[in-house]
Each structure stands twice: as C-alpha cells, then as structure tokens.
Computed example of a mutant assay.
Amino acid sequence: MSDTWDLAGGDAIAPGLTAVRPVGGGDVFEAWSAFDERLHAPVVVKIVRPGHVDVESSRAGLLREVEMLSRLNHPGVVRLFAYDDEGPRPYLVLENVDGPNLSSLISRHGHLPLHQLLPLGLELASALHYLRHEGVCHLDVKPSNVIMGAPAKLIDLSVAMDVADARALDHPVGSDEYMAPEQCEPGERGAVDHASDVWGFGATMFRAAAGHRAFDREPRWQQLTHGPAALPHFVPHELGDLITSCLAPDPADRPLPSEIALAIEPMMDRLPTARLSGFKISL
C-alpha cells in the first residue's frame, strides 16, 4: 500500500489550506502546491506521510526543520510561514518559489548554460556563506533541494543541524552521491562541518555544469575511493578548477563559500553581452 494521504486537487489539507497539485516529496514527507486562505497566496505544504505520523524520529525531523527555518532569514533559503505538529496531518507551510528544481531542469534540458550556471553558483554560495555565519550545516545540498527561482533557493532543512551537533555525528547523514567523505564516515575522515556543505555544493555544481553526476550511484559512496569524473570540455577550466576544489577529499582543502563567490564574480563579468534587435543589453 502506498504511504500517502490520497489527496487530490481541491481537497482540504487542513483548515484554510487547499491542495492544488503534488510537487514531490520523499520517504517521510509528501509535498503539495496549495492555496493558503490566510495568506491568500500559493504556498508549498510538506505533510508527514501517514506511516510516519507516529514515528518519533519523523516528528523530530519536522520540528528540527521548523526550528531551523524559524531562525533563518536569507533570500536564498526558503521561508517558513506556519506549521502544525499536533493535528492528524502534521505539516509545514513553506514559501512557494516559482521555478523547477535543479534536478528536474537538468533531466529535461541537460547541463546549464554559463549565463544560468554562474549566477546559480553565486546564489548558492551566498546562502552557504549565510548558513556558515549562523552556525548551521544544511547537510543535504543537492540538485533536488535547489529551486531555480530568482534567486535560486535552498529547500529541505529536515536534516540540518547546528555545527556543534554536526561535528558530533557518529552516523552517516545526507544523500549518497552528494555526501562529503566525512558525512559517509563521520570521525574517520574528519568532522562533519560547513566544509561538508561546500562539498555538496561542488557535487551539485558539477552535475549542473556537466549534465551528469560527479560520482556514480553504484557502488555506493564512490567518493571514498575515487576522484570525480572528468568535466566535459565545454566547461571553462577556471570554473572546472573551482568545482573540483570544492570536491577535495580533505575538508581543509575546500574553499569557503565567500571565496567561491569571489571566484565566480569575475567569471560573470566576462560573460558576453546579450544583444536583442540591435540594441545592447547590459547584464
């Protein structure tokens, strides 16, 4: 039996929240585009799946995401509007970002062109710089957790935690191909830290730049024994070197998010100027 609430467009998720269409989800949550009557605006609602309502760890994950989102305020991090952890369908009401997630965009169209890729890198670096200064590790930076709005936004802080808690981890956390080596084997390959999010950024940017993953899914955790695949020839060397530096096995060898941003800015300045019907458009 499918672990779902069997909602359809027009159904009430909760009082004042009307389901519009499904927009994805995972093992613990299903996600719906919805209309919020209080805000009188479209939103995204993450609903704990029926089979997880009574699972303590699933409820703890919901409350952890509430706590994280309640203290964060950045253009590149999705906003929380409301939540209910006590009703029959525990849920979060989140900002609706107008755009596809990066994973689906790559699946449909392949690698991103430079004029889209470089701003994405700059916007994600900005969000990671902010999280670093707030003492928060996202721990699941990957294409499906990036919504390609204006600006791009990081979503899903269900496994995010304070840096002190991340450094104390003794078990793997994250999504296999986007986990830094130290996330796969905490303690054995260094502490999980903000540098782990930089690794996730590098793996995400690699897929966006190349159209394929830096590491294969099988065998699991190839990043522990292999280097990343070669980037295609059409990726500029300067950008390729930056992405590769983010995938350094040693966390100490990875750049800071602010250093990533500083490296990308001049690359953006060198992008060709667009022209339309003979008129110059300054980027």
Rank of each mutant, 00 (worst) to 15 (best):
H109W: 10
A229F: 14
N73H: 14
D162A: 08
A41C: 04
D176R: 12
H138K: 15
V97I: 13
V20C: 12
A274P: 00
H52D: 10
A210H: 09
G110K: 12
D165K: 11
F35K: 13
P113K: 11
Y83T: 07
P88I: 04
A19W: 05
R49F: 09
P42S: 11
F279Q: 09
P249M: 07
S245M: 01
L63H: 00
K280F: 05
G110D: 08
V136R: 06
F206Y: 10
G25Y: 11
I155G: 03
R132Y: 00
E65Q: 14
A60V: 09
L128T: 02
L120D: 05
L105V: 04
W199G: 02
L80A: 00
V192G: 09
Y83C: 02
L242V: 10
A263F: 05
P90R: 01
A8R: 03
T244W: 00
A12E: 15
V44E: 10
P100G: 06
H133V: 00
L169T: 02
D140F: 11
L94F: 00
P181G: 13
S2E: 13
L124C: 06
L114W: 04
V136L: 03
L112G: 06
H237Q: 13
D6E: 13
S33R: 13
K142F: 05
P272H: 12
N96H: 14
S175P: 12
G61D: 11
A34W: 09
D6P: 05
H40A: 15
F35L: 13
G76D: 12
L157Q: 02
A261F: 04
G51A: 12
H194P: 00
D140Q: 12
P186Y: 10
W199V: 01
R38C: 00
D269E: 15
V198Y: 02
L102K: 05
S103D: 10
A41R: 09
R21Q: 14
D84G: 03
Q223D: 07
A41E: 09
L17Y: 07
R71K: 14
Y178G: 07
R21A: 15
D170M: 08
Y91D: 07
V66F: 06
D156H: 07
P42G: 09
I147P: 06
L118R: 01
P228C: 10
G211T: 11
P15L: 08
D156Y: 03
C184D: 03
R213G: 05
A150L: 03
V53K: 09
D269G: 13
L262I: 05
D3C: 03
L169F: 08
R217G: 13
H111N: 07
P186A: 11
E218D: 14
A82K: 13
A164D: 15
G76H: 13
R89V: 07
R207P: 08
P113F: 01
R207A: 11
A166C: 02
Q223N: 14
I243R: 11
S282W: 07
R207K: 15
S58A: 15
V43Y: 01
G187W: 03
G187P: 03
P266T: 06
S277H: 01
E185Y: 12
H226C: 05
L72G: 04
A125M: 07
A230G: 10
K142L: 04
G135P: 04
M179H: 14
V136N: 07
P266H: 06
G121Y: 00
V48R: 10
L124D: 06
H115R: 08
G61E: 13
D162W: 02
W5H: 15
P251D: 04
Y83R: 08
H237C: 00
E30F: 02
G9H: 10
E134M: 15
